[in-house]
Nucleic acid binder design. Structure first.
Lengths: 294, 294
DNA sequence: CATATGTTTCTTATGTATAAAAAACGGGGG
DNA sequence: CCCCCGTTTTTTATACATAAGAAACATATG
């Protein structure tokens, strides 16, 4: 009943490990592989068995050696490596953004389960987790309602975001030169400059960099509630921008320049400068989001 | 399989409704009762059937009249009116606060389900919802870990709480005299004074008033994320103080006086005053919580 | 024709089952 | 005694089943 996505993901990862080894070379121990693959030994053994069956690995007494290099074609497709609960997220987002975007829509667990082809349990569990994003609401003994990806949602989101982000950004002014954070700041500036240099081809990579940047800022003084909120922000930007492609290149270029200005401000340790750069970036991000909603 | 807690709760509520009616009087329609009881007509009919069977209601052709007044003893016990998913919350809190309070404890779905005598599905669902409180964390393909009711938890909680509450309190200074909020403020001040007058006997009622007060402040400018965070705060205070009774009376009396000071400040519309009263209350609340943790 | 009740259909809450994955156990061999 | 591997036990992820509850439909009655 449970899907074997963990096995398939591990199998694919194992192919990459084997490619770093030579024909006839002995494999690391099951325990070592377990650590490398980040799964249990049970799964490692299943992967090894699968590879033996395909002749990639030859098991001799007390040792295993590489029989032949695996082909890329033997990899399992990406979809099969995602747990059902993860696939449901994508299905739901598509349903939400494409089909029934209007606020007030009732969400029917059973219907969604049928539509997505999964068990109701999974949909229920997903909706429970998804609730934290503030887009759906539960009614006692009845279904859920979709509150809508509305301007109000964006405004409430950004009100919190501004509080959290200004708080974190200001803290940078008090960090000693010796803090390891500065190295990360320099690294992320480099990543921004690189992306900017090749913006025409790689503008779609910005979404991930954006999330990384804001998480770095938040991380100066860890707070589990702020970290949890970063998930909300990441979700919104990930899916909303995936759906709305208008002006994507320009939007992203502007955001990169704002990030760079904020990085400069952070390094200056000047509170006024930090405040200004941070607020200006958030204002512009908010306006962009609002414009794409209406 | 599903429990009939909705029916039992409605049954109990129905007893209260009948007590306001006279013997021989005709009952409201099913639809009217549905609205009053806040359940579906299906459940109303089940309640009516149950009461008919006990002779409380007599069904004549096309009408129902009160046959005899129900006895309080006929009420279903409180526990049976709580959905399993609600009972699990209590069980879990007790388990957490009494038995295994130490940080890092692994939480085992199957074991909890056995201990609480419920299906694993329920425990899973509960843990998913409970995650938002920041006290547990999930590990992929494995169980959950309890992060502990620690000083750090309290500090992170109050950092956010301070941001949110100061923001809301300050907004009061900008409210026009005509705002309906002021009436609610006066009402809640009265409630505080009443409780204070009878503090020796009723100090335990403070927990609920506290939650009501802070939700009122937050409500001036609704924000779904702030409202969601109020749940976290309410949970912490509800359960933690239920567990730790030390100095409860004194603590609550102090808090009431701080609330009253904050109410005065709000009504003064003086930002500096509001800031001071709000911060001073939050600081004292934080210290109290911290003291009770260590 | 509107409102009340009787009937049918659909959905949610909760229990049970089971394959996949993790963890624990146990016997060698270095 | 520690690591490696074979085996067994436990736990999680997911499917499915069903009674309780909600909603929709139908009929009757004033």
């Amino acid at each position: 009943m449970r899907t074997d996505t963990t096995f398939k993901r591990a199998f694919n990862d194992m192919i990459d490990i084997i490619r770093t080894l030579d024909l006839g070379e002995e494999l690391p121990s099951e325990n070592a592989l377990r650590a490398q693959l980040g799964v249990s030994r049970t799964t490692v053994r299943k992967v090894l068995a699968g590879m033996s069956a395909r002749g990639i690995i030859i098991s001799e007494a007390h040792r295993r050696i590489i029989g032949e290099q695996p082909l890329q074609a033997e990899r399992y497709p990406k979809e099969e490596t995602l747990a059902i609960s993860e696939q449901v997220e994508t299905s739901f987002m598509e349903w939400m953004l494409r089909d029934n975007a209007c606020p007030g829509t009732e969400i029917n667990e059973a219907e969604l389960a049928r539509k997505f082809g999964v068990a109701t349990t999974i949909v229920r569990e997903f909706l429970n987790r998804f609730q934290k994003y503030g887009l759906i609401e539960k009614r006692q003994n009845a279904g859920w309602i979709f509150k809508g990806f509305t301007a109000n949602f964006a405004l409430e989101l950004f009100e919190i975001r501004e509080m959290f982000e200004m708080r974190s950004a200001r803290l940078f002014a008090t960090l000693p030169d010796s803090s390891p954070v500065w190295k990360q700041v320099r690294a992320i500036r480099a990543a921004h400059l690189e992306l900017l240099a090749d913006i025409d081809a790689r503008f779609q990579d910005f979404s991930e960099l954006d999330s990384r940047f804001h998480r770095l800022i938040a991380a100066v003084s860890p707070n589990r509630f702020i970290e949890g909120f970063q998930d909300v922000i990441a979700m919104v930007f990930h899916y909303h921008y995936q759906w709305n492609k208008r002006d994507e290149r320009t939007r992203n270029e502007i955001a990169i320049r704002e990030h760079l200005a904020l990085i400069d401000a952070l390094e200056s340790r000047n509170i006024a400068l930090i405040d200004r750069a941070c607020r200006s970036h958030l204002t512009s991000a908010r306006e962009t989001l609002l414009r794409s909603i209406v």
